[in-house]
Design a protein around this nucleic acid. Structure first.
Length: 552
RNA sequence: UGGGGUGUCGCCAAGUGGCAAGGCAGCGGGUUUUGAUCCCGCCAUUCGCAGGUUCGAAUCCUGCCACCCCAGCCA
């Protein structure tokens, strides 16, 4: 983190708590429910929680909020840990589980019963909803509300013993059925679920709700600042009610911030699942997905994700960040760390008439970072350039190869096109050119300096590769706004080129290594599919293009 | 229409009574063997609106307006 992080209300508040002595050591936590894959929005939460602990020299725990076994699984516990680690964060101590506090929660539930602050309610789910009232009307007390402490204890113990059917009864807090805050209308603390839990097995037939668990988890762990998103703001009075009515060892404080929204992106689990289920994308880690696994496979560096989260700031106002900001962070990171290489996406043969044999040229791996070293690039009289880099004729705005004009081959010589071969259908199939002597590392002796520079590979040593070109998954800034997100899917979000040509240095790329293919963009060797014998690269992001366009 | 929030440049976002930071995007210009990077410059007399307090208000007060969240035995 930078020495002077930008100001935001969380940092200001925590600093104030430290200054007053209210907080001695900052403790935060990232509390995902293991019921799905993490996405860019979670990355923000991770960045906020771990970042705060880091800034104030405190601790941040990773805690699985596993109170609903029916939706959770061990698979997600693994993937979430991997994603957090990949982002570059390390949690303090062991991974925590809400489920490891189940016995304590159970005892605290009995404590509330004994204090006459909780009761077993026999209402069905439908009845409970009806009794709860509406946004504008108060609720009514449950018929079970005035049970004796003895009866409540007996019933709750029998709930725990597994004597009742699912949904038959619940344990509720006795607060206020007329509260304008619906969360305070005798919220449910425990429900009966005969589900096998991934951590506790079949030990419990009853499970605590989020409200009865979260604050107490924080209290047990000594969390000082329990940071969550805005939709939990209405729950804060309830969070505090439990903390104030239970003999907890510590009083954590909940603070809410606005969740991250990004244009052209979905983060709804339901909608993301729809994309996977309908085959719009290849899976949860498809490079077009906003999941951490997808962004990783796309080649987005974790540092870029962290930088992005820091850059967009943290506030309490609903907002949608322009995805261009994310892309900017990715380019910024990759520009400095990605080695350069050449790859010809749409090969067009160039034959140089006045050059014989082969030589090995040494090109810098990075134009501004000599420390990144040099690489050997073979040169010969038969090359391939990109089809877009040649035209039989063009106006002065076009700075690439044109018949009768000169262009610089990146890191090599200046050539001049003489003529081209065209097949019966009118497609250009080869260009004949001549090399200008003495132009390796020098401008032409006649003083005519070529305006353009194009990339190339030598035919004899180039390797065929599969390149997956990606574009935005959606054509509209807010795809979730519509009922059917599928209508906004970009039909050209993926284009596969399987006969691109790469320079020799690229065949030995390590999976997940990102390169800048000069003049094209950043590309990552696919984490799973890349093989030396069959290279596969995913386009991470194109180079910024401020050129007016293709109007030559 | 009950309760809880939020409104500062196209998009984010600092600022908490003393003359409106920064980033992204955009627009000019320079350097450049990547139409990239980098560099320089421009880009809110105005802070949702209307009143008020004050020598002075984005910051305080009053009243409006707009948008978001809440009626899971999900989190």
């Amino acid at each position: 983190m930078s020495p002077t992080p930008r100001s935001n209300f969380l940092r200001t508040q925590i600093q104030a708590d430290l200054d007053t002595g209210q907080t001695i050591k900052v403790v935060t936590r990232f509390p995902p429910e293991p019921n799905g894959y993490l996405h860019i929005g979670h990355a923000k939460s991770i960045s906020v929680n771990f970042g705060l602990a880091e800034q104030f020299a405190g601790d941040c725990y990773l805690r699985f909020d596993d109170t609903n076994p029916e939706k959770e699984s061990q698979e997600f516990i693994h993937s979430i840990q991997e994603d957090v680690r990949w982002l570059g964060y390390r949690w303090s101590g062991e991974v925590r589980y809400a489920s490891s506090y189940f016995q304590q929660f159970y005892e605290w539930a009995i404590y509330l019963i004994d204090q006459q602050l909780a009761y077993v309610c026999d209402l069905s789910a439908d009845e409970a909803r009806e009794y709860r009232g509406s946004l504008t009307e108060p609720g009514r007390n449950s018929p079970s509300r005035d049970r004796s402490t003895e009866e409540n204890r007996d019933l709750f113990e029998r709930m725990r013993a597994g004597e009742f059917a699912e949904g038959a009864r619940v344990l509720r807090a006795k607060i206020d059925m007329a509260s304008p805050n619906i969360n305070l209308r005798d919220p449910i603390l425990y429900r009966i679920r005969r589900a096998h839990h991934h951590q506790t097995g079949d030990a419990w037939p009853i499970y605590p709700t989020y409200d009865f668990a979260h604050g107490q988890e924080d209290a047990i762990e000594g969390v000082t600042h329990s940071i969550c998103t805005l939709e939990f703001e209405d729950h804060r009075p309830l969070y505090e009610w439990f903390i104030n009515h239970l003999p907890v060892p510590h009083k954590p404080r909940q603070i809410e911030f606005a969740r991250l929204n990004t244009s052209y992106t979905l983060t709804s689990k339901r909608l993301l699942k729809q994309l996977v289920d309908t085959g719009v994308v290849a899976g949860w880690d498809d490079p077009r997905m906003p999941t951490i696994a997808g962004l990783r496979r796309r080649g987005y560096p974790p540092q870029a994700l962290r930088h992005f989260c820091e850059e967009v700031g943290t506030s309490r106002s609903d907002s949608t960040v322009d995805v261009a900001m994310l892309e900017s962070a990715v380019r910024h990171q990759l520009n400095s760390e990605a080695p350069r290489a050449m790859c010809v996406l749409r090969p067009l043969k160039v034959i140089i008439s006045n050059y014989q044999g082969e030589e090995h040229l040494w090109l810098p791996c990075h134009p501004n970072e000599p420390a990144m070293g040099m690489r050997s690039v073979p040169f010969s009289n038969t090359l391939y350039i990109d089809a877009d880099d040649f035209r039989e004729q063009a106006n002065k705005k076009y700075k690439r190869l044109v018949i009768g004009k000169r262009v610089r081959l990146r890191g090599a010589y200046v050539i001049e096109a003489e003529r081209c071969e065209v097949d019966p259908e009118g497609h250009i199939i080869a260009v004949h050119a001549r090399l200008i002597d003495g132009t390796l590392g020098e401008d032409p002796a006649d003083g005519f300096k070529p305006k353009g520079v194009i990339h190339w590979v030598s035919a004899a040593t180039a390797t065929s590769a599969t390149i997956r070109l990606y574009d935005r998954l959606f054509t509209t800034p807010n795809p979730a706004q519509d009922d059917d997100v599928l209508t906004h899917v970009n039909p050209r979000s993926l284009e596969i080129i399987d006969d691109a040509l790469i320079e020799p240095s690229l065949t030995s790329a390590m999976p997940e290594a990102v390169y800048q293919f000069e003049r094209e963009g950043y590309f990552v060797a696919d984490r799973y599919d890349f093989k030396e014998a069959a290279p596969v690269f995913n386009m991470t992001i194109g180079l910024r293009d401020t050129w007016g366009g293709d109007n030559a």
